[in-house]
């Protein structure tokens, strides 16, 4: 019915077309859409356009920006520190993704088969995800303290690990060899529950009959996991990977609070580097160029995610 009406409208002349549509509901639609649409245009589209323009401009906050072509991009790409930042971000993102995906999957499979306290465990693992990163980063900073921190106390029961540092207590956040990995661990702890919930949804979408036939065929626990569960959750696995990567590229809070990008730039990640350029060095052009490079990375990942998403069957409400 509606499609026929629309076809007829298309056939009608342009003048007629506009008149007809705005006659009834069109103006009400404007009223309903205006706040959100204006908001997005002003607070998202305008800045993104400005960011694009600024990434090709020189501006030191005084005077007006002027066009410099690709200079900012050249400036950013010629800086070895940018490549260090990119490498750090890459290591961080891949580290978080790998740990989170495997831990999340194993925990979800385990959680899916217990008969007691399911909701309790899910809530417990999920709790870090909803808490402010700044507040929990404070505690992790304390846990990582070299002299009196909880982590080094725990590790003192495993002398092999302290030998790695020549018997000295490891200064997790002040040692360029460990600082980035300390932030990876914090990040994994923070968002593992989120991964877990996505995997649980994926697992519960697997019909029971599949497991029944596997057990009839005499498959053991491991065989069932590798040959049945894993192939069946592959779409979820891809989806979770991309989401984790996208979130990882946006890391900022913990770096700002705990390491300030140090020591020796070992934890300087993209967003933090952009922030420094913009609000500490007042190099707006290069900061915008970094923002756009970040945008392209995330855009690419988002497009991959949308492609995968079409194949990802969601089952809401049964988690």
């Amino acid at each position: 019915m509606t499609t026929r009406v629309w076809k007829q409208r298309k056939l009608a002349g342009m003048n007629n077309h506009v008149q007809k549509i705005f006659r009834a509901e069109g103006w009400w639609a404007v009223v309903f859409l205006a706040p959100c649409l204006l908001g997005l245009l002003i607070f998202t589209y305008l800045p993104i356009a400005a960011s694009f323009g600024l990434s090709f401009s020189y501006w030191n906050l005084l005077g007006t920006p002027h066009w410099v072509g690709l200079e900012n991009y050249q400036h950013v790409l010629a800086d070895p520190l940018f490549w260090k930042t990119l490498l750090n971000t890459g290591l961080f993102v891949v580290g978080v993704a790998l740990l989170e995906i495997w831990l999340g999957l194993v925990l979800a499979v385990t959680l899916n088969q217990i008969w007691l306290g399911k909701t309790f465990f899910r809530t417990a693992y999920f709790l870090p995800f909803v808490t402010p990163l700044v507040s929990v980063a404070v505690v992790w900073g304390w846990i990582y303290e070299p002299e009196y921190g909880l982590l080094n106390w725990g590790l003192s029961f495993a002398p092999i690990l302290t030998q790695w540092n020549g018997g000295e207590p490891i200064a997790w956040l002040y040692d360029p060899r460990t600082a980035l990995w300390a932030l990876v661990l914090l990040s994994v702890w923070k968002s593992l529950g989120y991964t877990l919930v996505l995997f649980l949804a994926g697992l519960q979408a697997i019909p029971n009959t599949v497991y029944e036939s596997a057990s009839l065929d005499g498959a053991g626990t491991w065989q069932t996991f590798w040959k049945v569960t894993l192939p069946m959750v592959t779409p979820t696995l891809f989806f979770v990977s991309i989401i984790t990567l996208i979130n990882g590229f946006q890391a900022f809070d913990a770096v700002y609070l705990l390491t300030q990008g140090g020591p020796q730039h070992s934890t300087t990640v993209l967003v933090y580097w952009m922030f420094k350029n913009a609000f500490e060095f007042y190099k707006i052009g290069p900061a915008s160029a970094i923002a756009y490079l970040l945008f392209f990375i995330v855009l690419l990942l988002t497009l991959v995610q949308w492609q995968l998403r079409k194949r990802w069957v969601m089952h809401e409400g049964d988690v």
Binding site: I42, F43, T44, L46, P47, I48, A50, S51, L54, I246, F249, Q250, F252, V271, M274, F275, A278, F279, I284, A287, S288, A291, Y292, L294, F295, V298, L299, T302, L303
Partner: peptide, 15 residues
């Protein structure tokens, strides 16, 4: 949905 909020943050501040 494709724009990470961090990309906008610098020009948004000047806005």
């Amino acid at each position: 949905l494709m724009v990470p909020p961090q990309v906008n943050i610098v020009p948004l501040y000047f806005l």
